[in-house]
Amino acid sequence: METLLQQIVNGLVVGSVYALVALGYTMVYGILGLINFAHGEVVMVGALTALQTLLFLMGVAPDMAPLLKLAIAVLVAVPVCMILGFLMERLAYRRLRGAPRLAPLITAIGMSFLLQTLAMIIWGRNYHTFPQLISTDPLQPIDGVFITPVQIAIVIISALMMAGLILLVTKTRLGRAMRATAENHRVASLMGVDTNAIIALTFVIGAGLAAVAGVMFASNYGIAHYAMGFMPGLKAFTAAVLGGIGNLGGAMLGGIVLGLVEAVGAGYIETMTFGFLNSSYQDIFAFVILGIVLIFRPTGLLGERVSDRA
């Protein structure tokens, strides 16, 4: 019972981060029909930019409060990633707007390699220790079930950001323009919407969420690395497909469900396979889910038709 509860806690934490990243995939897909496979790399750039900022701050102001350092690091990482998201769209994807679907998809994969390689040149191939400025001393709200303050922070901040995004998209004039553009670029422009600006904004918002997700991953695991965005990126993409790609609520639900399945699966995989596989094989679950969803319910849990767009 403790194992199950513990794995549910772990799943919620990692699922919240998946959800944040999945939102970036699903927003871009919703508006352009493009799967931006380079989105996972934005997570990495966010984490490493934050790391760089923290190292700088520790050098120049060692006495600064740890939380303030972390806040500043996030405030640097978010705009850096937003600019990166903007440039990706402006320099690569916009030129391919009218091109056959395969061209932007391959470009996105190329963009992913490009960013990883650039990060490797800048930050090297080594794993870096990411300073854990929010306590990782586990609390024990229930006997045998542990949760760390950093994990609590991850869940709360993710929830707040997702609520903010939902409000933006459903309640504001800008959000209305985003939804209108997602449905029909041409008619949206007939309403006076600068659709290029709306598309750029979609990339920028997604990249900002990914930057925060990157800092969360790095803070939770205490490491950062030039290739750290790849697996979370694939997982978040799976989460977006699971929830119904193009659907914001779906990305959130998909992220949480995927995190839970993965964590609970990891907790029991040894028992399930009679000791043949251990918890380091937990990645299996995400991709088994991706396969099952694509075969049996390609529209995802909350999604609409997807067949002609994937």
Binding site: R176, A177, E183, V187
Partner: peptide, 21 residues
Amino acid sequence: PEGRGIFTRLTVEENLRMGAY
């Protein structure tokens, strides 16, 4: 536009408000 170009997933009021964007 020809074929009306309604935003089918937006509500009627949201469609009208898009006109005043």
